[in-house]
Design a protein around this nucleic acid. Sequence first.
DNA 1: CATGAATGAGGTTTCATTCAT
DNA 2: TATGAATGAAACCTCATTCAT
Lengths: 206, 206, 206, 206
Amino acid sequence: MPSQARSGVTVTAILDATIQVLIGDGLTRLTTTRVATRAGVSVGTLYQYFADKRSLVAAVKQRHLGEIVGVVEQACAMNRGAPLRVMVTSLCHAFIDAKIRRVDESRALYSAGAEVDGDVLVRAASLRAQQAIAAMLVTAPDATFEDPAVAALMLSTATIGPVQALLEAGAPAPMVALLRTHLTELCVGYVERIGGSGAARSTVGR
Amino acid sequence: MPSQARSGVTVTAILDATIQVLIGDGLTRLTTTRVATRAGVSVGTLYQYFADKRSLVAAVKQRHLGEIVGVVEQACAMNRGAPLRVMVTSLCHAFIDAKIRRVDESRALYSAGAEVDGDVLVRAASLRAQQAIAAMLVTAPDATFEDPAVAALMLSTATIGPVQALLEAGAPAPMVALLRTHLTELCVGYVERIGGSGAARSTVGR
Amino acid sequence: MPSQARSGVTVTAILDATIQVLIGDGLTRLTTTRVATRAGVSVGTLYQYFADKRSLVAAVKQRHLGEIVGVVEQACAMNRGAPLRVMVTSLCHAFIDAKIRRVDESRALYSAGAEVDGDVLVRAASLRAQQAIAAMLVTAPDATFEDPAVAALMLSTATIGPVQALLEAGAPAPMVALLRTHLTELCVGYVERIGGSGAARSTVGR
Amino acid sequence: MPSQARSGVTVTAILDATIQVLIGDGLTRLTTTRVATRAGVSVGTLYQYFADKRSLVAAVKQRHLGEIVGVVEQACAMNRGAPLRVMVTSLCHAFIDAKIRRVDESRALYSAGAEVDGDVLVRAASLRAQQAIAAMLVTAPDATFEDPAVAALMLSTATIGPVQALLEAGAPAPMVALLRTHLTELCVGYVERIGGSGAARSTVGR
DNA sequence: CATGAATGAGGTTTCATTCAT
DNA sequence: TATGAATGAAACCTCATTCAT
């Protein structure tokens, strides 16, 4: 099986073509032939590297989620011990940046929905992100969280909606700037309320 | 289209069957015959009420979105003039309640993704919700919003992720209770930071 | 499922077309499209009556075997109590006649080999024939068989080869006549040796 | 064709692999790649020795038939001039022994049916066997055959069925012993009736 | 000579849609 | 109006065969 030696170039071409077709035609009209043609290979070659249509789309999904989660994990690692506000701000920026870098993929996969592999892949990726976020949150010098896992869950899931609504819809630059600010406000407001120190804490207590 | 006609029973049966099939088999394996069978009618009858498969799924989508948005609009209407915190709390509760009432539909349509009608329907529904929310926000006696539309956009999109992650994944009751609290914290924290009165305001300004 | 109400005409047309294609092109080049076309229906219709290609060929096989075995059973039933020689002669004639009536089917199915359903169907049919033959043999007034089952097995299997070699190869009438005589000699010689009465018996004993 | 060449080892490995695949998967699922893999060579190498899939299977068929016929010819040669009963008994034993030695091949090729090269190879082999048998029969001191060719045809074809039914179905040793006896009885009974001397002759004449 | 990735024609099967009853 | 058999375009996938290395 060449799946081992996956001739990187060919595989990448196929994955990219898959995204293009997914964006242009949607999952239902994504045919293996169309993908192969767009990738400049034959169907046979496509099937040499991917067992079937499902695993083709799953691979695209996997690659995308992996990249995003990787960025999130990196941001979390780099901000351990930082003030809460810095943590959350960095996280939001990193997430938005990563999404911007792969808007196409995002759009494509969003349109595909959970048809492929249900949510298994998404949930796994989300979990990885949540663990990284939770691990970061507990190192905040100016905050203490009763339940860091829940906080991480909220942060990771609440950011997706706004980002999708704007980025994937093709919002213009000023709008993206606004998103950046407001998403940060959203997240900072949340963590300060539930885990924040000093003034913020007292607000919650009120 | 006689879909509006008296044979409401049949139409409802078909729509419900569509959801069942969507949940059980996903959009890709949703066939008109299967839907008809599950609904207890013949394919011919199905085509009497729906022009094609696309409009069948679109109708389900429409019905679901309409219900959710209706609930949101109602909550917004009932809370005009209320304190900001009350507004947002009510909104979150109303949204979660509505989603709980139709978890199946939510799950089904989520799995279908944007395959049908792209995002047009979703975006339209979201817009309606945002308008209702914005209209409510500006009546808050204890807050002033620079850009109520953006605030409404953030509120309506940020709530979706957490709700999906927990509700549609089949979270147990205690988790749902947690969600309720944290979602409210998330939203209240946000609006108080960007439009909130007194102390909160000054925090933002700091 | 219309498999119940199997519109006899259509099904028969499809089965006959299958045989034609089997004869003309062999199992490997038997395509469902070709069969459908030859039957004057669409592929879709074919699949409405047969789950897949395999069961299509299996149905042909089944029908053919059923007819042959039916004839054999009938011949056996009609010759109970008859003299051994009459029994065997009738059996051979009945078998040859039945085969002649369906030479095409025989040829077609022979060419298909055991590719479809292995030998299961053939073995089942053969067993039915053997039981009928054994049941007949034990009623012979002029013979006693130590092991009627084995005798029946031998008779039913030994006749196939010669019949195939001549009939299915398209032997001319005189050859067929010869076959009829010699096959009878073969079978009579055998049963008289192993179960035969009087003179024949003593021959064996000698 | 270099198939005759020195690389006999490779060719043999390929032919054996073909049989294995034929037994395990049937002709329909026999792929050149699978055969090559099982043989421990690459597809390219396979195509170096066999023009195409058809000739690959044909070669297996040929080899098998050649072996069987060879054994038969040898038995016939060795029994020229022997008493009729000895001739036929030896023939039956030789045939059964040869088949037992290659049960796998037999099964494999039976399952393949006449898909490859129709019956041409089989008929040619059968003819060679018949000629050997006929040549032997005419040397019988205690019998005279009106039509030795027909006798040979009957003997060679009638033996196949029982042997297949038992041997290829995987009959246990005692059953095989029974087969040996009964097949001999079948053949002896036949030749004595149609060509046999003395008592048997007179029976026919009656 | 050997290899095995690439090719693409073609086979099986599904399913949206129609229309005669 | 309701039915569901028939249709056939089109999708997925396989595999015999080639050819550059």
